[in-house]
Amino acid sequence: MLLQVRQLTKSFDDKTILRGVDLDLAEGQLKVIMGPSGCGKSTLLRCLNRLIEPSSGQVIFRGKDVLQPGTDVRALRQQIGFVFQQFALYRHLSALHNVTLALRKLRGMSVREAHAKAMHELGRMNMAEHADQYPAQLSGGQKQRVAIARALAMDPAVLFFDEPTSALDPLMSREVVSVIKQLQLDNVTMLCVTHDPFLAKSIADRVMFLDEGVVRAEGTVAEIFGAHADPRIRDFFAHEHSAA
């Protein structure tokens, strides 16, 4: 198991957001996390690479509890590619340099090596011909593909996505979905938060439903999307479908 989360909790001041979340992610698996707005999905992802400090619990990544004191947090983060809803490309850098920055400054690659690696990853995302463009010159779907290339370039053990398609129109969203499907064929391990039923159905091996800070249900796409026994889950999907 690549990642095992046990009884993870997170409170902000007196507000408890996560109340004991358990999660397993195997190598090569793609798990989707769904759930109502504000239920703590983004918080959960950020707790796993300690962008947010969890309050308690265990996050066992490659056999080690990374919440233990003495953990090299920066080394941990370098093994986890993070893709954001708003792309978060460095706007002062071209697509190419967005990808090379960490290779040069964190991996210590030469300009030439980093360039070659970045062009390879941009090529995988069908973005090679846009390498010299700045984020402001790219469409949303193109930006997200550059962001994925940036994450992949570090050869991460796992990719986290936080609603990768929700800032995109349906057409651009499809571009990103097909890219994620491609990664799935390449056996990339992924954890993907989304509201987008199309994305979830297209890609998920397993779906986890988070609600009020706990895992309310987990199962295959068919189990979660079908007529689920839990009325809250049925309501959620009825609502999402009408919204989408």
Partner: peptide, 27 residues
């Protein structure tokens, strides 16, 4: 400047000083 870019840089594993030097300061 966009806080999400700073968060992305932290998520990539850059140190506080690197985030400052490579993203915050140039922008």
């Amino acid at each position: 400047i966009d806080a999400s870019e700073l968060e992305a840089a932290r998520a990539q594993g850059f140190s506080t000083l690197q985030v400052f030097r490579l993203v915050t300061l140039p922008q």
